[in-house]
Amino acid sequence: MTHILILNGPNLNLLGQRQPDTYGTATLAEIEAQCRQTATALQVEIDFAQSNHEGVLIDRIHAARGVSAGLILNAGAYTHTSIALMDAILSAELPTIELHLSNIHAREGFRHRSYIARAAIGVICGFGPAGYDLALHAMARHLAA
């Protein structure tokens, strides 16, 4: 069965509590449950994880090489600062979709720059938790092609 790694970066563990006007009221556990339902429907297997630590995210990406067929990454603020995450994605040679709950292009100027996008096959942003479903469908279609 096709395996997809879904990684979530800093502060996403506070979803549902943190700035609900920007990020919505769904918790990360609720988003994970939604992803598991979508994965079952798509007949793919997922691993879903979150860390506030850049090195842990990098280690997870490295470990996915040769194990996962694709990566969906909501890197949070690391999107705009982490060359190391970009390099990890490029080194792992996994097709990657960059994902954000909010529309980063409608927010502060510093959020308009993404290092992750340079290594991604596509970017999904602004659709709230539904973005995870969109990303899973997009990745499954990409892997099947």
Rank of each mutant, 00 (worst) to 15 (best):
T2R: 14
N8M: 04
G9H: 01
G9P: 04
P10L: 14
P10H: 06
N11G: 00
L12T: 01
N13T: 00
N13A: 04
L15V: 02
G16S: 07
G16I: 00
R18N: 00
R18D: 07
R18H: 00
P20I: 09
D21Q: 15
Y23R: 09
Y23P: 11
T25C: 02
T27H: 04
L28E: 02
L28Y: 02
A29M: 10
A29Y: 10
E30Y: 13
I31Y: 07
Q34C: 09
C35D: 06
C35K: 00
Q37Y: 10
A39L: 02
A39Q: 04
A41M: 08
I46R: 01
I46A: 08
A49G: 09
Q50W: 04
S51Q: 03
N52L: 00
E54T: 09
V56D: 10
L57M: 14
I58R: 11
D59L: 11
R60P: 00
R60T: 05
I61S: 12
H62T: 08
R65G: 02
G66I: 01
G70S: 09
L73C: 06
A75K: 14
A77V: 10
T79K: 15
H80C: 08
T81H: 11
S82Y: 14
I83G: 06
I83N: 09
I83W: 13
D87F: 07
A88L: 04
L90F: 12
S91I: 03
A92Y: 08
P95S: 11
I97M: 09
L99A: 06
S102N: 13
I104L: 12
I104N: 08
H105V: 07
H105T: 15
A106T: 10
A106Q: 15
E108Q: 08
E108A: 02
G109M: 00
R111L: 04
H112R: 11
H112C: 11
S114W: 05
I116N: 12
A117Q: 10
A117D: 12
I121L: 10
I121A: 01
I124R: 03
I124Y: 03
